[in-house]
Every structure is written in C-alpha cells, then in structure tokens.
Amino acid sequence: MSISLSNISKSYKKVKAVQNISFYVKPGELFGLIGPDGGGKTTIFRILTTLLIPDSGTATVAGFDVVKDYKAIRKSVGYMPGRFSLYQDLTVEENLTFFATIFGTTIEENYDLIEDIYVQIAPFKDRRAGKLSGGMKQKLALCCALIHKPKVLFLDEPTTGVDPVSRKEFWEMLKRLQKKGITILVSTPYMDEAALCDRIALIQDGEILDIDTPNAIVSKFPKTIYNVGANNMYKLIKALQHYEHLYSVFPFGEFVHYTDKRDSFEVVDLKSYLEKEGLTDIHIESTQANIEDAFMELAK
C-alpha cells in the first residue's frame, strides 16, 4: 500500500480533530478526502506528511512509518499545503529553483514530470509569485511539489478559491500525473470533484462516513430523489417540511431534492398537496442522487 492509516486519532487540547480513522490508498491511485472545512482533512495530511504525531494508531506512507521513519518520508513525498505556500517575493522561476535545490535536484533533471504544467506558467517565469492569479499560483505550487519526483503526492485543498477553468485544468493534470505512476491523496470541500477520484472517503467532524468508489457511494443511496420546483422557493420548502410523508427535503439549485418515506410514492399525491398549499408552476420529476445527497444522508 502507498498510504495506510489504522485507527488514527488526534486531539488538539480538548478538541478531537480526527477519531479512529482507517483507510488505505493503493499505489497509483487517485484518492479523495471529501468533506467540509474543520472536518479533519488537514490534520490527516499533516499526520501523513510527518508534521504531526498521532495520539494513537499507526500510519505508513510509501512503506515508512510516519513517526519512526519521518526522515525517509520527507525525502519521498511531495506536499502542497492548504494555502499555496510559495514565496510571494520570489519569481516563478526562483521559487521552482529554490524547491529543486533544497530537495537536492534541478529543474532540468525532472523537467519531463512537470513539463506540461510548467509550459502554462513559463511565459510568466520572471513574475513574482505574489502577482500571479489563483490558478497560476496553484500550478506553480504543484510544480514545486513535484520537482523532486515524489512517489506520493499530498494535495490539501488544491482547488479552493480557484476559478472553474483552473479547477478543471488542475484535475486533468492530476489524471496525467496518475498515469505516470504517482500516488495522489487529494482533499476538497467541493462534492462535485469527488466523481473525479478513483476512490473517496467522505469525512465530517473527524470521522469517516464512508469509503468507496464515487459510483458505489451514490448507488448506495436508499431512496428515490425527486426534483421539485414551484413558483416560490420559500413557500415550497415550508410546505414540504410540513408534508406528512416527508423523509428529507433540501434546496438544490433551482429545485429542492425531496425524498418520501413511502415505497409507493405517487407524484400526483404530492402535486395535489402542493397545489392545496397555494403553490403554482409545480414541477416534480425523479432524478439521480449525487455525492452531496449521499453525504447528507450519511451525515444525518
């Protein structure tokens, strides 16, 4: 296994950051830790990158123990912390050269690995990192984390605060890196990014809700979901919340996602109820559950 955690727990003073976390990541896998802020994602990253010592449990990265063999791990992993940790006052090229030197390598030596990312920021190589856009900072940070050809890559919320175009490009880059045999552990608060991972762990409040492939997690969703829409969103939610057969209702973009307690649910029943409540333009149709639905169901 490239990464394995077994019953890892960690508290800061009284606050339990993560509790009894166990999972593994296979070599060459793209594994996602999906969950909101404060869920414990960063703590897991810091334990795996040897920055924190767990209170209990064991973990290994590339076969090395995170406590005993921390020096070996530090040589063989790439880490991109939550904020794009670059030297703002150094240029793109100087940043990259610096990180290459401290890892005892040069840009030329591993250029093939970063080439397709670096060419995108190369036109700005003399610009200071502080003056780059979010997307370019993200690419530079990734180059810096890759420059020593790590076996395992840790990316803590690499797409937070980045525009959709850069996000999309970033995931495409990760897929290409994966093809080159690098194991990647990535975290994100965006549920829509979960589908891009091979396997994911849903995490909230320091506990793992489920671990599986994105498809398997969605297919485990126990109910049929209905997209419901009407002329007034607020009244619609209120009405549904008072409906006797309600299982759950959540706003979801222009619709609400509604699930019913009964197995024999009839759309017309709900429609007539909503009409009675004074709503118009009623729209009801069944839809596919997504990761976010699954997450909410598991977190309930």
């Binding site: 810091r46 990158t49 040897t50 920055l51 020096k71 530090r74 040589k75 992993v77 880490y79 912390p81 939550g82 904020r83 940790s85 670059l86 030297y87 703002q88 990180f99 401290i102 890892f103 005892g104 810096c144 984390a145």
Partner: peptide, 13 residues
Amino acid sequence: ELGTMEILLVSPL
C-alpha cells in the same frame, strides 16, 4: 505564516 515552513519541514533539509 505563509505555510512555506510546512514545506521546508517536509523536505530533506
């Protein structure tokens, strides 16, 4: 503050 210390720590330096 910048978070670069994290990277320096997770390096062979």
